[in-house]
Computed example of a mutant assay.
Amino acid sequence: MDTSGTLDEALERLHGSGPERLGRLTNHAPMAVESLAARGQARSVHRWLDLYAPKLEEFPSRGEPVTDANWPEALGDPRRVADWIGYFAARIAERPWREVLAQWWPRLLPGMYGGSTHPVIRVGHAVRTLLSAEGEPTAPRLAELAHGLGYWAARHHPVSVRPSLPGARTAAAALDAVPRIADRNGGFPTLLGRVSALPVWTYEATEPAEVHARLTELVRAATHRYATHGHGEETMLVHAATAPNAVLRTLPALPHDLWLPSLHAAWTASAAVTAMYAPPAGITYTPPGTFTPEEVMERALAHGDEHVIKLTDTALDIGDERALAAALRAVELSAPLV
């Protein structure tokens, strides 16, 4: 983890910007710079941010403050995002961040599908910085958690679909069993509304270690699958891996009784993204060579696309050859940041 202060500088620079742009697209910069800093690329954070800066918009105006009394009526209202961020900043200033996270995680978890799953991904990156910090966490890192939680609350969007179709015992086979939706016209919320049924991923996981192992299995399977299926939608299929990985990264900061429902929600998110964007069939993919994890990250940085950087970060969490191949496939499929 970066100890140079560069990540804190970048986060402070970014907290004057809103979590979205053009009214619907996510600001990926906080997640991307955290990925770069976490992977030994802190020296390149500001240069990358300079390239991304034209996509940033000013922080939105506040309306009515969110309070402990009125928060249910503000949940899921994207117009209240600044109010929500202010609410969480105040709560985190009053109480330890883990307590705030543990209180709000079960409230927010049913709506992790809003904002194309980006809010929970941003929270996962923020939690990683806090867990890795030596000593007291810095103000920019605490503020980043407030921004992530506030964005999640504002874009909170539950789904009614529940896994009910025949599935499989392994995560890879269960993802293969996900049926594709027929009509693929429309944006993420529209397509999400067309996901009517998902397969059951059958597993035995009740103890915390078992839940952690199963969630790790899901992240690995979804990452591997990108190498062979990413051509279905090179950007959106990234989230089949990065959304459950955000949950996985957050588990150590949560009470154990929240782990199993987190696994269920992560599966639903990964399977739903697969249903919405996976192609009819996979392909055989051969990487352009053999590269170390550090070299793969350097390729992702040189490419610059924020989704490529984040998928590469997840692939490095897995660390095997198939995961690195998925990251290299994302470099090939995606348009570079210029």
Rank of each mutant, 00 (worst) to 15 (best):
M1S: 14
D2V: 01
D2R: 01
S4T: 15
G5T: 00
D8S: 09
E9F: 02
R13L: 08
H15C: 01
H15T: 03
G16I: 07
G23K: 07
G23D: 11
A29S: 14
P30E: 09
A32G: 11
S35A: 15
A38L: 13
Q41V: 03
Y52L: 00
Y52E: 09
E58R: 12
P65K: 01
D68K: 10
A69Q: 14
A69V: 15
A69L: 14
P72C: 09
L75S: 04
D77F: 08
D77N: 15
P78L: 03
R79D: 15
V81C: 02
A82Q: 03
D83E: 14
W84S: 00
A89Y: 02
R91T: 01
E94T: 12
E94S: 14
A102G: 09
A102P: 11
Q103P: 02
R107M: 10
L108P: 03
L109H: 07
Y113L: 15
S116T: 13
T117N: 14
T117C: 14
P119Y: 05
V123E: 11
L131I: 08
E134T: 15
E134G: 12
E136P: 13
T138A: 14
A139E: 15
A143M: 10
E144Q: 15
L145C: 11
L149K: 08
P158E: 12
V161F: 08
P163A: 09
S164H: 10
G167Y: 10
A168P: 03
A172Y: 04
A172D: 13
L175F: 08
A182H: 12
R184K: 15
A197W: 07
L198Y: 05
R214Q: 15
V219I: 07
R220S: 13
A221F: 09
A222D: 05
R225A: 13
H231D: 09
G232I: 06
G232Y: 04
A241Y: 08
A246C: 05
P252V: 10
A253K: 07
W259N: 04
L260S: 15
L260W: 13
A266F: 08
W267Y: 15
A275M: 05
A275L: 02
Y277D: 04
P279A: 01
A281C: 03
Y285D: 00
F291V: 02
E294L: 10
E295T: 08
A302D: 14
G304T: 11
H307Y: 09
K310I: 12
D320H: 00
E321K: 00
